[in-house]
Structure formats: structure tokens, C-alpha cells
Design a protein around this nucleic acid. Structure first.
Length: 591
RNA sequence: CGGGAUGUGGCGCAGUUUGGUAGCGCACCUGCUUUGGGAGCAGGGGGCCGCAGGUUCGAAUCCUGUCAUCCCGACCA
């Protein structure tokens, strides 16, 4: 029945002003989605077809390796979350509500609590292990700032899988299986992904990887990949910026190593300022930043002047020292004054109140005869050294943001392999959770020796709505979307160019019905519109195959073109049939 | 949560400075003409101007409050 005149596809000529990124703009313009509130969208029939295709690919691949699909409730009682402890630690992103009896509930952002509860009840024996259970359904996160359309909504669709094991070795095997499955899933969706090491964040656990769709940014478009990825082509190293390590070139040393002294540096409150006004070499400056934890504990971070702090790394390092630091922020100028009686720009790691935790990046510890501020406005110490002029920091960690051009951390020293930087959209991730949740919630099975053991767990997520949006982000041109065949809402569109031409009509209907009989998902643009309107809509909506019954219709010739091709080719009906089916079966992404 | 901006038919906007009861383009409906890259003409339907107070003879316009949306930052399985 797919006659376009009957389908709910309302394209817009102009972009609603709130749509900022390409995928959001094109999905709204193409009649795929409509916003109903901040971060909440209607998925119109076209979009639901696309998401359904992503979901089906996910389902097929998961089932193929023995995972079992189930469905858990979105609405959950708070007590499960209190039991795991996440009721208190999850923070504002957890969508909380009360029912009519005033009982606390949550709309689930993820399902570790419920699945662990299921495992505890249903997986009683080691004989049931390993098991991998998954579902595909909506998730809720009360993002502080939803944006980028479907890329970061408050409601989104996700495939979440959880595996249960009796040993770490068994989890390791499953983890590798899932990594393969994920690569296959995204390949089938037409999306090349990069698997990168990542920080495991609030979900806990140790080992984790993210799957990134790398985005190429066209001229004048907003950057949409939210994650920065560092990678090395030679060693195959790749990691999210919140995790990436690198080897810095050594600091530039300066000739005369005279006595350390304090000099006047008025108005020089930045690294650049110090370099310009006083000739300080940035890599020899100790950059000092003050952060505050949620419990108002001050942290002082020390970095080389030519590098930047990576907040996630700093947060992890702070937790290592025993601080409660789930939510750190930079200190305001007045807080710095209260703590150190100095101005921003002259903060230094000396004469600190007891409350301070000092964490130095590894690279700063190697500095000799460095420049450093000393909590005296308008002054810096030069040719300073640890231990003699400045107290040696309490804690040393990697808290530095890697830079493109830094040396690869796993390549042979001296190989000269450097890191490159790109942006990516995180469409999936895999975690080794270990026994974090099974211990917190006391979920156990009976082992071979009759003892009660906590499950070893893994979890594996794919944002399926985000994956669909990432595909648009990755494959589009100025006219519209260029869907990968596997997730296109329809494979082909047939357009009679002139609706009042009987020969065109007849030919269009003929090829439309034959393609449909072959199993292709086709729409017939039977609308009483001019040719230009139908062409524009076809480009915008992004059907991979376009077939036009036009001027040569009377001779039985159709114009055939793939969405990403510039020119059409004339074919007979029979040739069009084989051509279209061939394109359908052997489609490969343009990359 | 801090900073900035914007709310006027489905979408994009004008009107607000200087108060007089709402307009344009697209979309939608009808008719005619047109028919290869978002057609033309004619006619038509649709808006408590985000909401609530206030000032005023009179408020889209001025004042106060409030809500919503977006951007930057912070933050983020």
C-alpha cells in the first residue's frame, strides 16, 4: 500500500530554529521526528521504521550468540535503587516520581538493579551460568541539558544486555564475544565504528570500551560528535579523551640554572601572559588549578603549563586518595581568596591549609628549575625545584588531557608514533562490572562446591535511536539524508515525473509492483505534485534507490539512480528490476 | 546549576522602540492554468500574540511575576 499520498510524511522546507545539528535538522525536515518537549520526541512512522530496523539487526545478532531477550519494567520502585545504593549516588539524572501512595519510584535510566534482582531469584545454580539477558526499550535520563535532537534526549531507546558468570575468565570470554557482536551490528547498520577504551564512570566496574561512530564535519556544520577520541594508526591504540594516555615530549630546558628566586610578575595571570611578558617557557611552568568537591573539599591540581587538565581523570585520582569526589568543579575567584588569600593566576602549591589535597600530574614531577606561582599576587618563583623550594606533592597521577601529536603510549619508545584526534558519537559500550552489583544487592548462586557465590557480571548497551541519528550525522549531503540500505525506512522510491502523463503512470506502477513482489520495500510517489517537489522530497527523505518514470516512459525506459550518485542511468523495466535487487543485496557503505 | 537569547496559525518571520484590537512567505483546502529540481492566478480555513496579574478609555506592544524552548559553559551509562 505504500503510496506516498497516504503515508504520514510531512516534509518541511524550513528548519525549525531549535534544531542545531544536522541529524536533528534533517530528521525534522524529512518528517521523521517532532519534538514534544525538551529532549522528548515523537518518532513518526518513518523514524519508527528506521529504529525498528536497527533494533532488528541488534536482536538478530544478540540472539545468534545465545543471548535471550526479555522485558523489564520502566517504572521501578525506589527500594531496589536504595538497595544498590544508587538512589543516593545517581544524582539529578535519575528521573524520580511518586505514586498516589506517596511511594518513591524511578523511571529507569538503566536496569542493573532489576536484572540483578532477576538473577538472584532465577539463576540459582552454577548450572544456569553463564547467561546473557537483554531487552530493547525506552530509557529515561533527566539530562541537565538535552540537546542535539535524538543524539541526547531525556527519553531514548536502548538495547541493554547483562551477563552473569561464575568466573572472571568466563566474563572475559563473553566480553570478547560481545565486542565482536557489536562490531558486526554496527557494520550491518552501515556504520564503521571504532572501539575505544573508556572511563567506566558512574556505572562502576573496571574494564570498558565504547563504540564510536567517527564523524566527518563538512564546512559550516556544527560539530556533532560529543566525544573526543585519540588514536594511533600504527599501534591501533584508541581511547576516549577521558581515558587516553599519551607520552609528552620532554619540557624544554633553559640554559643557566642559577639560584631560585622570586620575581615580580604583575598582571601575568595566565600561561600565555607569563610567556609573553616574562619569557617563561610554558612547558616549564607549573600550572595550578583549584577544584572543589561536592563536600567542599579543595583539590589542587598541578599540570605542566603546556597541558590541560582532564576532569574525569582528576575526579578518579581524587577518589583514589580517599576523597568523596563524584562531582568536582573549578573554584570561583572568591573561594580561592577565602582559601588561599590570593588571586586567580597566582595560586601555587605552597603554604596550603590542611584541607587541601594536592594531586600532581606525572609530567610535572619531572620538571626541574621550573616556574611556579606562590600564592603571592604579582609574584612567581623561578628556577624552583621539588623538595627544596616547593613541597613535593602528596599525590601523583595521570590527570592530563592528551593532545594530538603526543607520542602513543603503547608504541615502542623511540618509534615516534603519534596520537591523532577525532570526534565520535558513542553508540554503544561494553563494561565488565565484576561483582559490584551482585555484592551491593547480595545476589548469589550456588556454586559447584555448594557455597553461595556472588555473580560476576558484564553489561552491554547500544543506543538504538542514537545509532539511527548517528547514521544521519555520518551520511548526508546538503540535500538530505543518505541512508545506509540496511536501516533506510524504505529501500526505494518510484516517481512518475509528470502525474498527467499516462505512460509514465503505467510504467511507474508496473516497476513499483514488480519490485514489491520481489520483496523490496518501495514507495510510489503518487502525489499530484510537480516533478521538482518529488525529487526534493526524495533527496531529503533519503531513499537509497530512486527510480523515475519520465520522458522516456513511452519507450519503456526508467531513470535509475542511487541516492549518492550524481547521474541517473536509463534502463528497461527488466534491467531496472535486476539492477535494483542487485543494489539492494550488495549495498556497501560509502565511508 | 551559572551566563545569554527567544516565545506572534503546522514551519520560518515582521509588527513591540512611538499602545488603537494582527500581517507576510511556506504548508493546508477549492477552482483554473501549469508539469524534469520546492509553479502561477483567483478564492478559502486556521492565531485567547506562551501563561497570570497590573497600568490604561484601550495592551502583541508598557510594568511585574511565571512557564517554556534554544545557545554557551559546567556536567554526563
Amino acid at each position: 500500500m505504500p503510496h506516498l499520498s497516504k503515508l504520514l510524511i510531512q516534509t518541511l522546507r524550513e528548519t525549525p530554529k531549535e534544531a542545531e545539528v544536522v541529524s536533528h535538522q534533517l530528521l525534522v525536515r524529512g518528517g521523521y521526528i517532532r519534538q514534544i518537549a525538551s529532549g522528548i520526541y515523537n518518532l513518526l512512522p518513518l523514524m519508527w521504521r528506521v529504529v525498528g530496523k536497527v533494533n532488528n539487526i541488534v536482536r538478530e545478532e544478540m540472539d545468534a550468540v545465545g543471548c535471550q531477550e526479555l522485558l523489564m519494567p520502566i517504572l521501578q520502585p525506589a527500594d531496589l535503587w536504595q538497595k544498590s545504593g544508587r538512589w543516593d549516588v545517581y544524582g539529578g539524572e535519575l528521573m524520580r516520581l511518586k505514586d498516589r501512595h506517596d511511594r518513591d519510584c524511578v523511571l529507569a535510566p538503566t536496569h542493573e538493579e532489576v536484572i540483578t534482582d532477576i538473577a538472584d531469584r532465577e539463576l540459582a545454580s552454577y548450572k544456569s551460568l553463564p547467561a546473557n539477558l537483554y531487552q530493547i526499550q525506552l530509557k529515561y535520563r533527566d539530562e541537565r541539558r538535552p540537546r542535539f535532537g535524538l543524539l541526547r534526549g531525556r527519553e531514548f531507546m536502548m538495547k541493554d544486555a547483562y551477563s552473569f558468570h561464575s568466573s572472571q575468565a568466563c566474563l572475559d570470554r563473553e566480553y570478547d564475544v560481545m565486542a565482536d557482536v557489536y562490531t558486526r551490528i554496527f557494520d550491518r547498520c552501515g556504520l564503521g565504528t571504532k572501539m575505544v577504551r573508556s572511563d567506566s564512570g558512574a556505572i562502576g566496574g573496571s574494564v570498558s570500551h565504547e563504540f564510536m561512530v567517527l564523524t566527518n564535519i563538512a564546512e559550516g556544520e556544527q560539530e556533532s560528535g560529543e566525544n573526543v577520541v585519540f588514536y594511533c594508526d600504527d599501534s591501533n591504540y584508541s581511547a576516549n579523551a577521558d581515558r587516553a594516555e599519551s607520552i609528552l615530549p620532554p619540557a624544554k630546558t633553559e640554559g643557566d640554572a642559577g639560584e631560585s628566586e622570586i620575581i615580580d610578575t604583575p598582571n601575568a595571570t595566565s600561561i600565555i601572559g607569563l610567556e609573553k611578558a616574562h619569557g617563561f617557557e610554558p612547558s616549564l611552568i607549573v600550572k595550578t588549578l583549584v577544584f572543589i568537591t561536592e563536600n567542599n573539599q579543595p583539590i589542587m591540581a598541578l599540570l605542566r603549563g603546556d597541558t590541560d587538565v582532564e576532569p574525569i581523570k582528576l575526579q578518579n585520582a581524587a577518589q583514589q586518595t580517599g576523597l568523596v569526589a563524584n562531582d568536582i568543579r573549578m573554584a570561583e575567584a572568591d573561594e580561592i581568596w577565602d582559601l588561599l588569600k590570593t588571586k586567580k593566576g597566582f595560586v601555587g602549591p605552597i603554604d596550603l591549609p590542611e584541607s587541601f589535597t594536592v594531586i600532581a600530574d606525572k609530567s610535572v614531577m619531572e620538571l626541574k628549575n621550573f616556574y611556579v606561582a606562590i600564592n603571592q599576587p604579582g609574584k612567581h618563583r623561578i628556577r624552583a625545584n621539588w623538595g627544596t623550594d616547593i613541597p613535593t606533592p602528596q599525590h601523583v597521577a595521570d590527570i592530563r588531557l592528551a593532545r594530538a601529536g603526543d607520542l602513543c603510549p603503547i608504541s615502542e619508545p623511540g618509534s615516534g608514533h603519534t596520537l591523532k584526534q577525532t570526534r565520535g558519537i558513542e553508540v554503544g559500550n561494553i563494561f565488565q562490572l565484576g561483582d559490584k552489583y551482585s555484592k551491593d544487592m547480595d545476589a548469589t548462586y550456588t556454586a559447584e562446591d555448594g557455597t553461595e557465590q556472588h555473580f560476576i557480571m558484564g553489561c552491554y548497551g547500544i543506543g538504538t535511536t542514537r545509532t539511527a541519528a548517528a547514521a544521519v550525522e555520518r551520511y548526508h549531503d546538503k540535500w538530505g539524508i543518505i541512508w545506509p540500505m540496511a536501516i533506510a525506512p524504505y529501500h526505494a522510491v518510484v516517481i512518475p515525473a509528470n502525474p498527467s502523463d499516462d505512460a509514465q503512470w503505467a510504467l511507474a506502477k508496473d516497476i513499483y509492483e514488480q519490485l514489491q513482489a520481489k520483496g523490496l520495500e518501495v514507495v510510489l510517489d503518487d502525489r499530484d505534485e510537480r516533478a521538482g517537489v518529488k525529487f526534493k522530497d526524495a533527496d531529503l527523505v533519503g531513499y537509497p534507490i530512486r527510480i523515475i518514470a519520465g520522458k522516456k516512459a513511452a519507450e519503456g525506459q526508467l531513470e535509475c539512480k542511487m541516492r549518492d550518485e550524481a547521474k541517473a542511468t536509463d534502463r528497461t523495466v527488466a534491467d531496472t528490476l535486476t539492477w535494483a535487487m542487485d543494489q539492494f543485496k550488495h549495498w556497501t557503505p560509502v565511508v
